[in-house]
């Protein structure tokens, strides 16, 4: 399948361009399937040396437990550097998505936390795993996407991007977000994971799990913080997750896909987009675009 090879070549080129042109780059590592592919490409790009880029995980403290286990295991196996950051203010305020809602939780524990982490470490290039096929407002995103000193994205003032000639010039305090997987689709990601034998969090595979209905989604009873009235409704179901985020905000789908082949087959037949399970995208119309302007990835 030569198209995966071509996507790989393009992504490796982008990753090397970041390291060659920026002083202090970082890769956002969200532990999901796209991050797994990005990390794999990062190691390939700089072989035989260790990648000269640390990983940053913005931990909202509400991620699935299996995600955190997987993160720590992978980092050890691959010998890469990982920075974990949680918003100290959010910790103080005891932000809880069940109490404060998805909007406040996402804003404080994700968007604000990311901005704070970037300010603290002064990263000038932040590599992220977003893909253009994920959502309409992403379709026009550049591969090297410029952010002002307040980390804001201005959809009307983006640099034209021609050929593979990326403009990497920025002033002090400004930064770029770089998306090496821009041209990959969800199907490409899974096919590549299969072809390259890349480990992913087991939550992607169907299994009997204890889930309960919450705000229109089936969420996993992942720990004791789930309120009693939701727990009461919990039932065991054969489910898997198409995307991974904070467990109270990520809906499971009923599925029997237990391995990569079955996931790929299911995807080809799927009638809904992968973001459908994400509660945070539905707050309001155009909400992804709005979040991006504010500094969300």
């Amino acid at each position: 399948m030569s198209h995966l090879k071509r996507l790989e070549e393009e992504s490796i080129y982008i990753l090397r361009e970041v390291v060659a042109c920026f002083k202090n780059p970082v890769m956002l590592y969200s532990i999901g399937k796209d991050s797994s592919v990005m990390l794999h490409l990062l190691i390939k790009a700089f072989y035989p040396q260790k990648p000269p880029v640390p990983l940053l995980h913005v931990d909202t403290l509400w991620k699935f437990r299996e995600m955190i286990e997987f993160r720590d295991k992978r980092v050890k196996e691959l010998g890469v550097d990982l920075i974990v950051y949680s918003n100290p203010e959010g910790i103080k305020m005891n932000i809880n998505p069940f109490v404060h809602g998805s909007k406040i939780h996402t804003d404080i524990m994700k968007t604000q936390a990311l901005k704070k982490a970037l300010d603290k470490y002064q990263f000038d290039a932040i590599i992220g795993g977003a893909r253009r096929d994920e959502e309409k407002s992403r379709a026009k995103e550049r591969i090297f996407s410029f952010r002002d000193k307040n980390h804001r994205w201005n959809p009307k003032n983006q640099r034209p991007e021609l050929w593979n000639l990326f403009n990497t010039h920025i002033n002090k305090k400004e930064s770029v977000r770089v998306f090496p997987l821009s041209n990959w689709t969800e199907l490409d990601i899974w096919q590549y994971i299969k072809e390259e034998n890349i480990p992913v969090v087991p939550l992607y595979f169907a299994k009997k799990r204890l889930v309960a209905e919450y705000e229109g989604a089936e969420i996993l009873i992942d720990d004791d913080r789930v309120p009693e009235e939701i727990k009461k409704r919990a039932k065991e179901k054969m489910v898997r997750f198409r995307t991974l985020g904070c467990y109270p905000l990520t809906g499971a789908i009923e599925s029997n896909a237990k391995n990569l082949d079955e996931i790929i087959e299911e995807m080809k037949l799927s009638k809904n987009s992968e973001r459908e399970g994400r509660l945070i995208d539905k707050d309001q119309e155009g909400s992804m675009e709005r979040k991006k302007i504010e500094g969300y990835f």
Binding site: H40, K44, Y47, I198
Partner: peptide, 9 residues
């Protein structure tokens, strides 16, 4: 000539 080597296998 060093090609990108798969770290998994």
């Amino acid at each position: 000539i060093i090609y990108p080597i798969n770290p998994e296998n």
